[in-house]
Nucleic acid binder design. Structure first.
Lengths: 339, 339
DNA sequence: TTGTATGCGTTATCAT
DNA sequence: ATGATAACGCATACAA
């Protein structure tokens, strides 16, 4: 009688002795009055048959799927995962399910990802993408569906945007280091080209230097080039003088890892030889040397906020694109104290 | 003319001057002959309209969705993420999309997760769940859909199973430590109750001890109880004697982190005071002390294998449940050498 | 080989 | 207030 063992709305209607339309109304339009007699009969039938509406049929007919497409630049990146975690949680709580698409750092697949997800009628997108390329030129590419950007902006996209307050975070980091007597700062970042968050942090670093008597440099650390990184660290070390200590700022956890490896190679000690503060607060930060000072991003909140943002739009919220910048939290450990 | 800007099969049919059925056949049953004339007309129309079948409508009608439900115990766990990564990749490559459900370590939601995913007509499940509770008693709960278990078995579930070869891995770890002169071993694991992988590793540890002149103990490390852990490590340290060194085996990366924190608290040195090998090979392992020796799990392969396994079943592969045990790789670093 | 008609499970537009 | 009925987009018996 019932395909795949599941009760359909027709079964419920029959059991309750009413029409399918009535059952559908009972489920979706609780606000409209329906005679208490019928309502209770439908309710009983639903309970007895353990009926659950088929979301796909609902999506086909009604146009909305209660699905949210989450596109992530690289699921190997702990930051992406942390955001994903918060977003998925908020979606679940709001009755949405997440469809995941991992780009694996392949910018060329952005379009493919969006199309695939749109095919499944996702109601909206959460995008933590690469930023390079103009694949997502505009709403056109999004099939008219709302989206929220996380961490990285896209030029020309009029969507909500959620990220760390990079400027404030950088101020906190620099301020802390300067207070500790550090006067020679080196900001190490992954190559900034095209990635808005990296550009913003680099710019913020520059801005933080202006006010004070501090020398700052920026170093772009590429994936395989550990020699250049070693050289930069050694040069920084040489610039340190009494009362004018030197410190490294790492732009994210990936850089932090590279720096930690380099320090080990070079036999340099965090805190003693070079101060250190890094963006992102990985679980292992306390265990490296005297403990690495960090700026902890509220990744969970970022993910939740992004999802909430999107869901508000899905519920009809109008208005210009919003920017939600969440504050980071400075975690002071040995690497920015010793010496 | 077209809702939501997308071309439908009807549009293609009209453009090609054929019936919808013909278009559908052209798309799905390439094998059956269709007159070259019509075929080319349909092909042209498809290309011109940039037509893509609506997967939801297809699922509703045909019963299959090309969706795979991935239920993960805790997305905060790097192991889960690593597996997820491999699985998602393989699914994408095979033309499947992943629907994600994170349990957030809440075993009570297993059933909810399966039902929600089944509602969207997922074709099958990849399950990396908690193992506790009998929520997934049997195929009944899976709505008749095939599933593959990752890392953790469920009693009474007749499904394929993919995991690390725990016994071989434990042998490699113990063998390496014994070769290095370690005779007092302490295996530290998260509480094993109900979790098959933890039980198996613990059992394997016991098996490895029998053959040789080695003293072994097992310690279950609970989340907040760092005092007990400290005590266990100190006791182990005391048991070490000349020519009979002591070493810790950590059951996974979570435990490794706890042990590393404890060693720091206690002022003990890896390699010197206590040997160490841990399951899982987190990126930060080389940076702790002299480098932590580990057993690297082929997480990516595990995820890919699980997905492949499932997809084979979806393609109709019959036969009894398979067990795929993948080998780990011993990574020797300072923690198991020094002293 | 191709077209017609029906069903998949819902929602929504009409009547009543 | 409730019940027929037509979409939604596609696949598939069945007919031709």
């Amino acid at each position: 009688m019932q395909r795949s063992g599941r009760a359909t709305i027709a079964d419920v209607a029959e059991a309750a002795g009413v029409s399918k339309a009535t059952v559908s109304r009972f489920l979706n339009h609780r606000e409209r009055l329906l005679s208490p007699d019928i309502a209770s009969r439908v309710e009983a039938a639903v309970a007895q048959l353990d009926y659950t509406p088929n979301p796909m049929a609902r999506a086909l007919s009604h146009g909305r799927s209660r699905l949210i497409g989450l596109i992530v630049a690289d699921i190997a990146n702990p930051y992406s995962v942390a955001v994903l975690r918060g977003a998925e949680e908020a979606c679940q709580a709001a009755g949405y399910l997440v469809m995941l698409f991992n780009l694996g750092n392949d910018a060329g697949r952005e379009r493919e990802a969006i199309d695939a997800l749109a095919g499944y009628q996702v109601d909206g997108f959460i995008l933590n993408t690469l930023g390079r390329g103009t694949a997502l030129a505009d709403a056109e590419a999004l099939h008219g569906k709302p989206a929220v950007l996380v961490d990285r902006r896209h030029a020309g996209m009029h969507t909500d945007f959620v990220a760390l307050d990079n400027l404030a975070a950088m101020r906190a980091a620099c301020g802390h280091l300067v207070e500790g007597g550090h006067r020679e700062l080196l900001y190490i970042t992954e190559p900034t080209r095209g990635v808005s968050s990296r550009r913003e942090r680099t710019a913020a670093f520059g801005a933080c230097l202006k006010a004070v008597d501090v020398t700052g440099e920026v170093f772009e650390s590429a994936l395989g080039d550990s020699d250049a990184l070693d050289a930069a660290l050694l040069a920084l070390r040489r610039r340190a003088r009494r009362g004018r200590r030197a410190a490294v700022l790492a732009g994210n956890a990936v850089v932090t890892l590279r720096v930690a490896a380099a320090m080990q190679r070079l036999g340099l000690r965090f805190g003693e030889d070079l101060g250190f503060v890094g963006f992102d607060d990985p679980e292992w930060a306390p265990l490296i040397g005297p403990g690495l000072s960090t700026i902890a991003q509220p990744t969970d909140a970022i993910g939740r906020t992004a999802a909430t943002c999107l869901i508000e739009r899905l519920r009809g919220l109008e208005g210009p694109p919003r920017q939600l910048l969440l504050p980071g939290a400075l975690q002071v450990r040995g690497s920015s104290l010793g010496g």
